[in-house]
Computed example of a mutant assay.
Amino acid sequence: MTAGYVEGSPVFSGLSLSFGRTGLVHVRGGNGTGKSTLVELCSGYLVPWQGTVRVGGLDANSPAARAGRRICRTQPALYPDMTVRDHIVFTSRCRGAAPDGGLDRAVRLGLGPWLDHAAKTLSTGNTRKLWYVICTLGSFGCAVLDEPFNGIDQEGVEKIAGELSLWGADRLVLLISHTLPAALTVTDECVLDRDLRSGESWH
């Protein structure tokens, strides 16, 4: 698979990656090795120049693949004037899920006192907690998360790590993170480097 953003300057050239249907895979690598590009390829928004990207056996840019995967990018994208509760209820409905599960998760992460506060009033840590929750609502078979622990307090990190470890038992979780919490149970690791970008395979 070959992909990138600027013609003539591919981020990946002849890359071959394959992941199982379940497991928690830690994806790591230095700056510029393509970690965020891998996220966008899995999301289906970045289409490879050559080759294919499949999620759960489906083309990554297909509606069916979109319904069965969750992408949590590094930068939150929230509606500033919507409350925490409204973000969760709205996203749950879009995902065809009952909002109670998302609200319960938010409370466990410490967002209970801020459920009726606008997103623009949240601290950086609480903003990232809300972003993580709404990005992972509903039923899915694959989740790709880019640095979900950044800016989050230790208790929140431990709770997120616990969720990811549980998910890895029956679905695929790709976790991009420079550091791993002790509470996290990783089943495999993928290291992106310059050599891998230029044609090596990883399974």
Rank of each mutant, 00 (worst) to 15 (best):
L111V: 03
R85A: 12
G151H: 07
G96V: 09
P76M: 12
R93A: 15
P76R: 08
V89W: 12
F90Q: 13
L175C: 08
Q154K: 11
D81H: 15
V84R: 10
R85G: 05
L172F: 09
I88W: 03
V89E: 13
V107D: 12
V186P: 08
I176K: 02
L130E: 06
H178E: 04
T121F: 04
L180W: 05
V157R: 03
D146N: 13
G101W: 10
P181V: 04
G138Q: 11
A97G: 10
G168D: 00
K120W: 02
A77S: 14
G112V: 08
W167G: 04
W114D: 04
L164R: 01
L137P: 04
Q154D: 12
D188Y: 10
V173P: 00
D81M: 09
A77I: 05
P148Q: 11
I88R: 03
A161Q: 06
V89T: 14
K159G: 02
A183E: 08
W167S: 01
R85D: 08
I88F: 09
S165N: 01
A106M: 07
V144A: 11
T179I: 09
A119R: 02
A183R: 06
R73M: 07
T187P: 08
L180N: 01
W167K: 04
G151A: 15
T179D: 12
C135Y: 02
G110F: 03
F90N: 13
G102A: 13
E189T: 15
N150Q: 14
F140D: 13
C135M: 11
D86T: 14
P148W: 03
A182G: 06
S123L: 01
R108E: 13
K159V: 07
I134N: 03
D104I: 15
W114I: 01
L180T: 09
L175A: 01
W114R: 00
C142I: 07
L122I: 08
Q154M: 12
C142W: 03
D100Q: 15
L111Y: 06
K129F: 03
T187K: 11
A98M: 11
S177I: 06
R95H: 13
D170W: 10
A183W: 03
T127E: 05
D104K: 15
E163I: 02
E147Y: 00
R73C: 03
A97T: 13
D81C: 08
L180Y: 06
G110M: 06
F149T: 00
S92K: 04
R108M: 10
L122R: 01
R108D: 10
C135P: 05
T124K: 01
R105S: 10
L137H: 08
G112S: 14
A182N: 07
S139A: 13
V173E: 04
T83I: 12
A119P: 03
S165W: 00
V133F: 04
D100Y: 09
D81L: 12
G168Q: 05
D188W: 06
A143I: 05
R95D: 03
P113D: 06
V133H: 00
R73F: 07
L164G: 04
A118T: 06
G162D: 06
T91H: 10
R95G: 03
K159R: 14
V107L: 09
